[in-house]
């Protein structure tokens, strides 16, 4: 069974997913960071595949992408690093990346590698749903990869239902009209949107991401969903860290406790 399904079968509340960019802050940090995330007590690991033009991302993740590329990160390099990681890391792992680098690697070769190394799911923000259904769904399914879609406050109820019908992992709720980047607090308007989606009784679990940064925002988001995703705030922790292992663990502890 796919580790994402196993997770949500047993844990329905306060699921914490942590995003980081592969190759940041240093090229060889990928697997050590994953181990630290697991040791810290998070539930899902999202590995960002760096890209030169990440249009859905704010300055913090843009910078981490650029530094990772300068460090020499590439799709080949990432898969090399991931060989054998399953001996050390047991959490569900999702790759998040823009379509172009994956297309150049070859969609099928990419899926095959994901399966070989032990990746469970994908988040491809610029892959539209229809394109996925027409071109890629059968392929992802055949390699046991769960595809995750984003929704935002602007997404219509009809489209949310379509998205819910076309995935069986989780739904990534973008918390506001925005690109990634930690902001302070969660507004009344955002709460209304969280409630509206909660009332829809979707079949998939929902994780709220963008702007989640600490224990308070994690708890608020979790009150209206199955949990949350932290990206930019975690990247900042990595950026300022002297001791990755310790800092990652204590940050995650501070969020979940």
């Amino acid at each position: 069974m796919n580790r994402i399904h196993t997770l949500f079968n047993t844990k329905k509340e306060r699921v914490l997913s942590i995003y980081f960019t592969a190759g940041f802050p240093n090229l060889e940090d990928t697997v050590p960071i994953m181990e630290a995330i697991e040791a810290g007590g998070a539930d899902i690991i999202e590995i960002g595949v760096p890209y030169s033009d990440p249009v859905a991302d704010g300055p913090t993740i843009q910078d981490s992408n650029q530094i990772a590329l300068q460090n020499g990160m590439s799709m080949n390099k990432l898969f090399e690093q991931l060989v054998g990681f399953r001996a050390k890391v047991h959490l569900p792992v999702v790759l998040m990346g823009y379509l172009n680098p994956i297309m150049q690697y070859g969609m099928e070769a990419f899926c095959k590698k994901c399966k070989e190394v032990g990746v469970d799911g994908l988040i491809l923000p610029d892959l539209p749903m229809q394109e996925y259904l027409d071109e890629y769904k059968a392929l992802f399914d055949s390699y046991g990869l769960v595809n995750t879609f984003l929704i935002s406050p602007q997404t219509s109820e009809k489209r949310i239902r379509e998205i819910d019908g076309n995935t069986d992992g989780f739904i990534y709720m973008v918390s506001s009209h925005s690109i990634t980047g930690a902001k302070s607090g969660i507004s009344e308007e955002q709460i209304n949107y969280f409630e509206r989606v909660r009332e829809m009784n979707l079949k998939n679990p929902r994780l709220i991401g963008f702007g989640i940064s600490n224990s308070e925002t994690f708890t608020t988001a979790s009150n209206y969903s199955n949990g949350a995703i932290i990206g930019s705030a975690f990247i900042k922790v990595l950026k300022n860290s002297e001791n990755l292992k310790e800092d990652v663990q204590s940050y995650i502890q501070s969020v979940i406790n």
Partner: peptide, 21 residues
């Protein structure tokens, strides 16, 4: 250039083998 995706459309663009623009 080679086929790929840039600014929301599939087109021909100049990129590295690794798909960076």
């Amino acid at each position: 250039g080679t086929p790929g995706i840039l600014h929301g459309s599939k087109t021909i663009l100049m990129q590295t083998e690794d798909g960076q623009v």
